[in-house]
């Protein structure tokens, strides 16, 4: 079987569709979570959802549904704890992390299932996705995208400044809970593709990648969704291509590909930010003493290589800790 034959396989088509949907939904909600500086919230909910999966295995119901229910409950609980206790929010998050994971492993054991069953949910198993799973994923993705894109003005206001949003008349707690619930839903959407333990990566890494280059919130959001799609579909195809030689799981491949994209854009972002800082105009201060340079053999110009930074009605050439402005035949120290 060749590499291209893979795409004619039905399970591969389903997996591709699921990966695409996950790549869209997770970064969309992730952008608002990062805006609120709660990047690890997704990871916490993912750990709690492990208990949900285990409950599904124990009771014989679909682990996806029990995971949704438990993850939503966990997310609401986290939100309420965060709202009540100001100082120990991260400790509460950590308690839920460990409780969720330990509970999940314990209950899976009681259900008579091994770690192998749980592993499909912890690290994803795209290849075992049923048509029903794809339909479920598609439905949840539609819900997540409708809400995040449709309510983005409100969610943006709440995520950037809660006090302001409250005084503007928004029901801040309802929107916070909405974000938490949507995060829980997106995580269960992503459970089958990248798995519960890696899901936070798909919510956060595309956002981190996109904000290296974006200046606006909108561009960050759309860019993150593009990166998410590229990483999840690309990672899936890559892992399929590699699996002819070695066994490569799609989940980690997707996450590592997303991280590689971050690594590629990071230096560019650092350089662009440094450049924009360097070229920001100097403030105009009147009544500065007049000082001219001593000897200045070098002649500044448009392409002399020194940054020409706007300063009032002229430019200052920046070099060796000096700001030199042309003044007739000589240069002034500015």
């Amino acid at each position: 079987m060749s590499f291209l034959d893979l795409f004619s396989l039905e399970f591969m088509q389903r997996a591709l569709l699921a990966a695409l949907l996950t790549g869209l939904a997770a970064p969309a909600i992730g952008t608002f979570i990062v805006q609120r500086r709660l990047a690890l919230l997704g990871d916490g909910i993912g750990h709690v959802a492990v208990t949900g999966v285990a409950l599904g295995l124990l009771t014989g119901t679909s682990p996806t549904w029990t995971a949704v229910v438990v993850a939503v409950l966990g997310a609401v609980l986290m939100e309420l704890i965060r709202e009540r206790g100001h100082t120990n929010g991260d400790v509460a998050l950590a308690l839920l992390f460990y409780g969720g994971l330990a509970g999940g492993v314990l209950i899976t054991g009681i259900a008579g299932q091994g770690a192998a069953t749980l592993q499909a949910y912890l690290f994803g198993s795209l290849n075992s996705i049923s048509p029903d799973d794809v339909l479920f994923t598609a439905l949840l993705t539609v819900v997540v995208l409708t809400v995040t894109l449709g309510l983005s003005p409100q969610l943006f206001a709440v995520a950037s400044d809660q006090d302001f949003a409250r005084v503007a008349g928004l029901r801040v707690r309802a929107y916070n809970l909405l974000i938490a619930v949507l995060a829980a839903v997106s995580i269960t959407v992503a459970m089958r593709t990248v798995g519960l333990l890696l899901v936070s990566a798909l919510m956060v890494v595309p956002v981190a990648t996109s904000q290296q280059l974006a200046r606006s919130f909108r561009a960050t959001l759309l860019g993150a969704m593009a990166v998410g799609c590229l990483a999840s579909v690309g990672g899936l195809v890559l892992s399929a291509a590699l699996s002819f030689r070695v066994s490569v799981a799609p989940g980690p491949t997707i996450v590592l590909l997303a991280l590689a994209m971050f690594t590629a854009t990071w230096p560019l972002g650092v350089w662009l930010r440094r450049r924009s800082r360097l070229m920001a105009p100097f403030p105009e201060v009147s009544a500065a003493p007049h000082r001219s340079t001593d000897e200045h053999p070098h002649e500044h110009g448009a392409d002399c290589g020194h940054p020409a930074v706007p300063h009032g009605d002229h430019v200052d050439y920046v070099h060796d800790g000096h700001r030199h402005a042309v003044h007739g035949e000589h240069y002034d120290e500015h």
Binding site: V34, R37, P153, Q154, A157, S160, A168, S216, F217, R218
Partner: peptide
Amino acid sequence: TGGVPATVREVVASGRVGRRRLL
């Protein structure tokens, strides 16, 4: 500023939330 970059216009436009209808 927040955790994600935003333009001046976006931040100022978020002041309209009290007057905008949903969706």
